[in-house]
């Protein structure tokens, strides 16, 4: 048979590509449940880390069970609200896809909220953030005190920011800067800004941006204000209670 005939080449490549596609589809079908379970645990861990829990999960013999247990114990409630601050029924907050939500018009968005209750009965509320850094998405969780205004912890992560520069957003040193900052000035939503050249320590709404990571800092700044501002109505309604 002539292997260099066009008809042979076309048939050969078509058959090969179809076989490869079938193999990859099968692999995907069988591996997806395990992958999603991993992503879920990762999310739960980030939520716990934003309130300073489960920081030692890496040293635990069974990390996955440890995180699940801690999540069950401390995250007492999770629900979704809309931009008017009303609770939406029957939503699983942790399964909400933020990327898809952010493409919707504001009034149709489902905004996840996680409620933490500590050992001494103190409660905190945790909301997710998401946006674009320099090379890819950045995301994280911001935990607020019971006044719905003061940040008590934050975690951020990224897909592929520049190591040593933008990638520093996932270090505890950077995340510590957010503790104690406020997202409201009186009744007005201010978000927390990342300030290039350093924030004045007396500034309640600003933290130091990352030197050399300006574009990542800008992205995170936008992610914070875009993701937190839809919650305004909800936070304000809770403050009055």
């Amino acid at each position: 048979m002539n292997k260099e005939k066009n008809s042979y080449i076309f048939t050969y490549s078509a058959v090969m590509v179809i076989l490869v596609a079938i193999a990859l589809t099968l692999a995907n079908i069988f591996l997806t449940p395990a992958q999603q379970a991993n992503i879920l645990v990762e999310q739960q861990w980030q939520i716990l880390k934003s309130v300073g829990k489960a920081l030692d999960a890496d040293e635990q013999p069974n990390k996955v069970n440890y995180i699940r247990g801690m999540y069950e114990k401390y995250i007492v409630e999770s629900f979704a609200v809309n931009s008017e601050g009303q609770k939406l029924e029957g939503k699983d907050a942790i399964k909400i896809d933020l990327k898809a939500e952010q493409k919707k018009p504001l009034e149709q968005r489902e905004l996840p909220v996680f409620v933490y209750k500590g050992d001494n009965g103190e409660s905190k509320v945790i909301v997710p953030i998401r946006g674009n850094g320099l090379w890819g998405p950045v995301w994280g969780y911001v935990a607020l005190e019971a006044d719905y205004n003061t940040i008590c912890g934050a975690v951020f992560d990224h897909e592929g920011e520049t190591p040593g520069l933008g990638a520093e957003i996932n270090t505890p040193e950077f995340q510590k800067r957010f503790v104690g900052k406020k997202i409201f000035e009186g009744e007005t939503f201010t978000s927390v800004r990342l300030i290039k050249g350093g924030a004045d320590p007396s500034n309640q709404h600003g933290v130091d941006a990352i030197s050399g990571g300006t574009l990542t800092s800008n992205g995170l700044d936008a992610a914070l204000s875009n993701s937190l501002s839809p919650y305004q109505a909800f936070f304000k309604s809770q403050m009055k209670k």
Partner: peptide, 28 residues
Amino acid sequence: GIPNRIRIIVQLVVVAALVILVDQILRA
């Protein structure tokens, strides 16, 4: 069986498929 004219493409498809498999398994 590989036609000489498209052998690099065939190699790439095989390598890419294997890499995707490895990546999926690592993720899982």
